[in-house]
């Protein structure tokens, strides 16, 4: 099976490979895997308090399409709001990379990774905000 030029481009020169500090309260981490291939993909987003994605890093162990899909989404999400990033679908990714049907699950994985990273950030923020609110309520009582 031949990879498309865009897949090869991302595979040979993947952008944004690396890690962000997962303990940073502004970093959301998404870890997903597809047993279909035995792929594992970690996507990390640094998100400002007002919900804008400032940085994105990934590490993927998998086929060329999985690496290209994750590289592409890190490029796409930078500068986007969380809400806009949540709107990226696997179809957008598959279309951009011209993925063949047997590799569609790689784009599904990348979509899931964005959502998982944002959910992780939201959960962290909720945990951060809740004690503060609780303290505020306690003070007023």
């Amino acid at each position: 099976m031949a990879y498309s030029d865009k897949v090869i481009e991302h595979f040979e020169n993947p952008g944004n490979v690396g890690t962000l500090d997962k303990n940073d309260p502004n970093v959301g981490t998404g870890l997903v895997g597809a047993p279909a291939c035995g792929d594992v993909m970690r996507l990390q987003l640094k998100i400002s308090d007002d919900g804008v994605i400032q940085d994105a890093k990934f590490k993927t162990f998998g086929c060329g399409s999985a690496i290209a899909s994750s590289s592409l989404v890190t490029e796409w999400v930078k500068g986007k709001s969380m809400d806009d990033a949540m709107k990226i679908t696997n179809k957008d990714i598959a279309l951009e990379l011209s993925l063949p049907p047997v590799k569609i699950h790689c784009s599904v994985l990348a979509e899931d990774a964005i959502k998982a990273a944002i959910e992780d950030f939201r959960a962290k923020r909720a945990a951060r905000v809740t004690p503060a609110v609780a303290a505020e309520v306690a003070k007023e009582a």
């Binding site: 895997g33 047993p35 279909a36 047997v102 569609i104 699950h105």
Partner: peptide, 13 residues
């Protein structure tokens, strides 16, 4: 069918 298809991709590890 834990093979390269979408149903398997949706199996969560």
């Amino acid at each position: 069918k834990l093979d390269s298809d979408q149903s398997a991709a949706r199996v969560k590890m």
